[in-house]
Amino acid sequence: MNPVIIQKGDGPVILGQPHCGTYIPDEIADRLNDRGRQLMDTDWHVDFLYDGILEGASIVCANFHRYVIDANRDPSGKSLYPGKNTTGLVPLVDFENRPIWKTDPDTDEVERRRKMFHAAYHKALSDEIDRVKSTHGIAIIFDCHSIRSELPFLFDGKLPDLNIGTNDGATCSAEIEDMVSKTCADAAKYSYVVNGRFKGGWTTRNYGQPDAGVHAIQMEIAQRCYLASETPPFLFDEKKAEHLRGLLGQILRLLDGVARSGNLNGVRHV
C-alpha cells in the first residue's frame, strides 16, 4: 500500500493529514498488544470531515497509523513539548499512558520505519509545498488533527473544542493567526484557544516559514465536536459534522482568499 495519498489542487492551501490513517503492515501489527490493536489514538474520520471542504485545496494524507510511526513528530526523536507528557516518534504508550507493544521496537526498527513511512510522508508534503509555492508565490499549510476531549495523561480537564497552534506565532503571519482565531471566536457554538496545550507539531514548526512565503497553522479538534462518541467504534456524527464543516470551510476560504490576493501582511508574494 502507498504510504501517502496525495491530491493535487490548483489553490494555495494544503491540508496536511498525518494521523487519520489506519494501515499497519502485518509484521508490525503482530507486535502490537491487545490495547495497541484498538488504535485508540487515531484522528478518526478527519479525512472525511475535510473532504470537499475547499475547492482547489491540495491534500497530503498518511495512510499508515501513528503507531507505525508518528508523521507529526521530529524525526530525531526530540520532544516537541519538553517537560510535558507526550508520545514519541514511535509511541511506546497510548494517550492514556498504557503500553501498546508486546515488545517495544528497537532503534533499528524505528529507523526502518522512519525511512519507509515518515520520510515518504514528508517528501510528499515538501514536494507539494514547493509546487504550490512555485504557482502562487505562497503556500498555506493547514494541518488537520483531532483528539479525544479528556486525556489526563496529556492535559488537565476537558480540552477546548478548537485548538489553534502556531508555535506562539512563529509559523505563520499574525494576519493568518488572527483571521483563524477571530473566525473561531465569532462561532459562539465552539470554545477555542490559541497556542494552548497544542502549539503545533513538527509539521507546523518545520515548514512554517512566513518570511519565505510558507505559512503553517495546526487545528486540533476535540472529537466530541463531530463524533457520536469518543469510544469504539468512534462513529461519525453527520449532524455535528455538518455544523463544524461550515466553520472549517469558512476558515479555509478566508485563508485561500488572502493567499490568492497576492498581498499578505504588506508583503507582496510573486
Rank of each mutant, 00 (worst) to 15 (best):
F95C: 03
K102C: 00
G88T: 03
V132C: 12
D74H: 06
S146V: 04
S149A: 12
P152S: 15
F117T: 02
I147Q: 15
T107V: 08
S146K: 12
F64I: 06
W101I: 00
P105W: 15
I53Y: 06
T103C: 02
C61S: 08
N97D: 02
L125R: 04
S134M: 15
S149Y: 13
N97H: 02
R113G: 03
T87D: 03
V110H: 05
G83V: 06
L125G: 01
P152A: 14
A57C: 06
S146M: 12
K84W: 11
D130L: 15
Y81D: 08
E128I: 00
A62C: 05
R73S: 04
I100F: 01
R131F: 07
F64D: 07
I129T: 01
L154T: 12
D104R: 02
V93Q: 04
S76T: 14
S149F: 14
H118V: 00
D143W: 13
K133Y: 09
C61E: 13
D74N: 10
R148C: 15
F64G: 02
S126N: 09
H136G: 10
D108A: 06
D106H: 03
P91Y: 11
G56M: 02
W101C: 00
N63H: 09
N85C: 07
R66V: 03
E109W: 02
Y121N: 01
N85D: 03
H118C: 06
K78I: 06
R131G: 02
L154D: 13
S126R: 08
G56N: 03
D108W: 09
T107L: 14
C144M: 15
D130H: 11
R148E: 13
A120H: 01
I69Q: 05
H122F: 07
V132F: 08
R148H: 13
N72D: 07
S58N: 04
D74R: 03
R66M: 10
D94C: 00
S79I: 04
F95Y: 06
K115M: 08
G52I: 10
I129Q: 15
L92C: 01
E128A: 13
L89T: 05
S126F: 12
L80Y: 12
D156T: 12
I140K: 07
G56W: 12
V90R: 01
E128K: 07
T103L: 06
S76L: 10
I138H: 12
E96G: 02
S149E: 09
E150C: 14
Y67P: 01
V132M: 14
D143Q: 14
Y81H: 07
P152C: 14
K102P: 00
K84R: 10
T103P: 00
S134P: 00
G56P: 01
W101N: 02
D156W: 15
I140T: 13
